[in-house]
């Protein structure tokens, strides 16, 4: 399968800064902000957003992580045997503006599961979605509030985000033909 690097480390860094700024409303929308990463790569991404926001505007948003394994809609598939990795929401989400963070928005099913799981922890004031890459082909009426980069793809292609914390380097790959 053909693999092509479409975003290099420096571009990923720039996009993370942009996503942090959008999430923070350029410093004007920080009240009650909580940033929650979705396993796997949403978790380090959420950490980077929080670090960038607190560095630039000197406030520390709440940080959490969600493992949506138990909320997936394909749990009964023969092939799926997912490991449960644990969810950490160590703060009260009631009334907060919770920004869910994931690396790629594709079908929207992960976001759907993340919303279902999140509201089992309480009643946030708002739930928003921030993604590094929106590659299209959504299968649910779900859109991201903050998108660092839109990428045109065909359904057979795959987009892989690599992050230093998980993969050893920062880059975005497009896999498949065209």
């Amino acid at each position: 399968m053909k693999k092509r690097v479409i975003l290099e480390a420096s571009e990923v860094a720039r996009l993370v800064e942009k996503l942090a700024a959008d999430t923070a409303g350029d410093g004007k929308n920080l009240e009650g902000l909580a940033v929650v990463g979705v396993h796997n790569r949403g978790v380090p991404l959420a950490k980077r957003l929080v670090a960038a926001i607190s560095k630039r505007w000197n406030v520390e948003p709440e940080l959490g992580s969600l493992d949506i394994t138990l909320y997936r809609d394909d749990l009964s598939d023969v092939a799926s045997q997912p490991q449960v990795r644990g969810t950490e929401i160590n703060f009260d989400i009631s009334g907060k503006r919770v920004v869910l963070v994931d690396d790629v928005l594709y079908t929207g099913r992960t976001a759907r599961a993340a919303i279902s799981e999140l509201i089992d922890f309480g009643r946030p004031g708002r739930i928003e979605l921030a993604v590094l890459v929106d590659r299209g082909h959504h299968e649910l009426p779900i859109a991201a509030d903050y998108v660092a980069k839109k990428i045109e793809t065909t359904p057979s292609q795959m987009v892989e985000v690599h992050l230093k914390e998980v993969d050893g380097r920062d880059e975005v790959l497009l896999i498949g033909d065209n």
């Binding site: 493992d67 394994t69 490991q83 449960v84 969810t87 279902s116 089992d120 922890f121």
Partner: peptide, 18 residues
């Protein structure tokens, strides 16, 4: 796996759907 499930009992809704 049990360590992950232990957290469920601390949620405001102590129930997951699998």
């Amino acid at each position: 796996t049990a360590a992950s499930f232990k957290e469920v009992s601390t949620r405001s809704i102590k129930k997951v759907p699998p």
